[in-house]
Write a protein that binds this DNA or RNA. Sequence first.
RNA 1: GCACCCAUAGCUCAGCUGGAUAGAGCGCUGCCCUCCGAAGGCAGAGGCCUCAGGUUCGAAUCCUGAUGGGUGCACCA
Length: 581
Amino acid sequence: MNLFSDIRDLVIDTLAAMQGAGELPEGLDFANVAVEPPRDPAHGDMATNAAMVLAKPAGLKPRDIAEALATRLAADARITSAEVAGPGFLNLRLDAGLWQGVVRAVLAEGADFGRSTLGAGKRVNVEYVSANPTGPLHVGHTRGAVFGDALASLLDFVGYDVTREYYINDGGAQVDTLARSVFERYREACGLEPEIAEGLYPGDYLVPVGAALKEKYGESLLDKGEEDWLEDLRDFATDAMMDLIRTDLKALGVEMDVFYSEKSLYGTGRIEAAIESLRDKGLIYRGTLEPPKGKMPEDWEPREQTLFRSTAHGDDVDRPIMKSDGGWTYFAPDIAYHYDKISRGFDALIDVFGADHGGYVKRMKAAVSALSDGKVSLDVKLTQLVKLWKNGEPFKMSKRAGNFVTLRDVVDQVGADVTRFHMLTRKNDAPLDFDFARVMEQSKDNPVFYVQYAHARVCSVLRKAAEAGIECGDATLGAADLGRLGHDAEMTVIRKLAEWPRLVDTAGRANEPHRVAFYLYELASEFHSLWNRGNDEPGLRFLQEGDPATSQSKMALARSVAVVISAGLGILGVTPAEEMR
RNA sequence: GCACCCAUAGCUCAGCUGGAUAGAGCGCUGCCCUCCGAAGGCAGAGGCCUCAGGUUCGAAUCCUGAUGGGUGCACCA
């Protein structure tokens, strides 16, 4: 149920009827006709721009169209008034029954209220986190994880068939480095002095991995050369790291559907197949790239390479896919991976990267465009930096020393709910401040708390009602006499509830889950406002002493707020608290 | 040098894909608890939406350019 799209349908139908009556020419495009909440509530319940959008193509004056449209709309039982305003806006007032219908719909549909068919069951793959399996996840990964997960839930809510996926970069040189680092920890476990050379991973999270190696191999590896243990240790270490990463993700409430191994692409002909596919399209060639303008790398020399003509699909320069030693560049398996996603039948792909991978977007889009002949879309969402603070002081971390702040540190300290919500209070491409002290604060300054508090208040008043012997099941409330609602303060909340389906829809189109967080804050704010007005105006209290019928109608509204908050928090992966004392 | 992202209240940020008088929070000033949770609410002050052009009925929003920040720029992932 989406009141805005219902009314828009009504407007479109009416416009079509006007065409039938010769009041409007045929062949008009109604795509830009919008029905939206007016900026100023005094203007009415909804406003449409139809007359202004159509004036030019129809060759008529906007006000004339608006007048005619207003006359017809006013004849509809759902519309109580239609007034032309400004340059040609049409302000509509709706029959109160429609607003009451919103509350009824929320109670009837529950957590499904606002679900849409925007996605039409299309299959979308959301790839996120995809951190190298060389250590625990840090705060930056945490933001990507939260964002990707909420985005996936949002897309599911608007009707997509969503797959959550993690690409394990277990095929490159960094895994060799990991294996060598672990070997030193293994030596350490055997009582020798570890030699953590420059370039190895110094973090002590590898100590238990070394110990586990000793469990498995005893001291048998000590006198062997790297060629004898490197491969085994690569697997052993990446498995250990992925276990760690999976556990961390779970602590944050993130569960992937697919973990896709880069290594599985090698030696199976899959990279070759992907490249062949590009070659068939004439997009692979041998050539020499121009040196980059401006800053010239020290060791630059002209070099003939195997290149992907990504410029044919919007990239700035063509990209090497093969190194001079004959091995693949990192780009080649990425091409093959996306080729695999395409061949698994996804209609749309989304990659969530850290902002430091921004330079990678165009070539990846070029690859997907080329591989799918433009049939599969790729949207790349970049998550900006997280700046850590503690009590207003910048919180420094040094990756070199291996003491960076991990996802686990954050979740253990502030909890998954707070972490998730806070990371969604900023647009993905805006930098985010994360102050350990402030995000745990339980006051209105903290949006997580503020939203959860609204939910808890509803739960509280419902408990009170139950104690007073008032039946408050959703079915009962849905059948309550909602005509008893109607005060401005109540209508404001109902209007906000009615926006939920619309909000979800636009958030889903933009792939922007943060909008859900902002909406929830606004809804909570309207609710708190109504709640407090009950202090001065007893008639606005939800629980009306000695008047069960009115109490139930007000409870219906309160309960609707809780249902929508709960559904919204569900998309964000945050628990709706029932009590916060 | 090139590409991408960003620029909105003193501070931190929204702004519903082009709509009416640009919104929150923090901070500042002043109010509201014999009252369903004051961990809340109300009111006030605070803006040439960085600048200059363009598109049109209409621009914070779209386009171009400038300025100021961030990020990334061949056989590393």
